[in-house]
């Protein structure tokens, strides 16, 4: 498909609208329809020297709301993603723990991490909607997204503290059971990566755990190992993100304008 060039401001508005509608749980097909229709309008309006303010009115926020309210809610897309994201996040810590030996979790930890995943997802969705609706600057956007991450970290911290004070029943898995769980999660990650056509889970997993695993064969002392593995993790993630951004950029420049 040939792309038509919109002004930066219009492009940002369309992107924000897409994000807002998606995080409001609207149907993908309908989102595509209305945003494409608006793109056509903005394109023709800009060709005729009109600005986006004449089209969306004084308040883009109100305008997004008025479009959103005419669309049905469709949470099927979310219903598909939410369990995937929660299981994906769980698999990181489970596979990490597995390298330390058989799995063993207290009831509080299991329930706590489930609640935390739901809270975190809710927070991120809220942040998406807030940032999109209010068309905030990049810095503010970053700060808004930091909020659910901070809350989630505090929540995990609180659980760890409470867990060390109060005893809740501990579920111990046998060696075979632990490996079975590990294999199940690994298979899930591979399936998810193929389905979503992304290597992000696998790369994160390798970046998180491979350095620790490899360094455990070395004779470095614990402190050196911790620091080195953390540095390697950041380095690998950084390289991967750099690669993804570059690829995206090439894709964007590759399309005729």
């Amino acid at each position: 498909m040939v792309e038509y060039q919109l002004s930066k401001k219009s492009e940002k508005f369309i992107d924000d609208l897409k994000l807002y509608l998606f995080s409001s749980g609207k149907n993908d097909v309908e989102i595509k329809e209305i945003t494409e229709e608006l793109e056509v309008h903005l394109y023709e309006a800009e060709q005729n020297g009109k600005s986006i303010d004449q089209i969306v009115g004084a308040s883009p926020k109100e305008y997004m709301k008025s479009i959103s309210s005419e669309m049905k809610n469709d949470y099927r897309a979310w219903a598909k993603y939410v369990p995937l994201i929660i299981i994906g996040a769980m698999s990181f810590s489970i596979l990490g723990d597995l390298m330390q030996g058989p799995l063993s979790y207290s009831l509080l930890k299991i329930i706590g991490s489930m609640i935390n995943s739901i809270l975190f997802l809710g927070g991120v969705m809220f942040a998406f909607r807030y940032a999109a609706r209010n068309q905030v600057s990049k810095i503010k956007e970053f700060l808004i997204f930091m909020l659910p991450i901070m809350i989630s970290m505090l929540f995990i911290g609180a659980i760890l503290i409470v867990d060390s004070i109060y005893q809740t029943p501990v579920i111990n898995f046998s060696v075979a059971g632990s490996y079975l769980i590990g294999v199940i999660f690994l298979v899930f990650i591979i399936f998810f990566s193929v389905w979503a056509k992304t290597a992000v889970l696998i790369v994160t997993l390798i970046a998180l755990h491979l350095p620790t695993l490899l360094l455990s064969f070395t004779t470095f002392n614990e402190e050196t190992r911790l620091i080195t593995s953390m540095l390697i993790t950041y380095l690998l993630m950084g390289l991967y993100l750099y690669y993804v951004v570059k690829k995206e950029k090439r894709k964007k420049e590759g399309t005729p304008t």
């Binding site: 309008h41 309006a45 004449q54 009115g57 305008y63």
Partner: peptide, 23 residues
């Protein structure tokens, strides 16, 4: 859509923003 918006403003509805028609 764009034609409708143009047409509305030609008829004198020029205070409403064009995007109003889409919802």
């Amino acid at each position: 859509g764009y034609e409708m918006a143009e047409s509305l403003s030609e008829y004198g509805f020029d205070t409403i923003s064009e995007g109003t028609i889409y919802p």
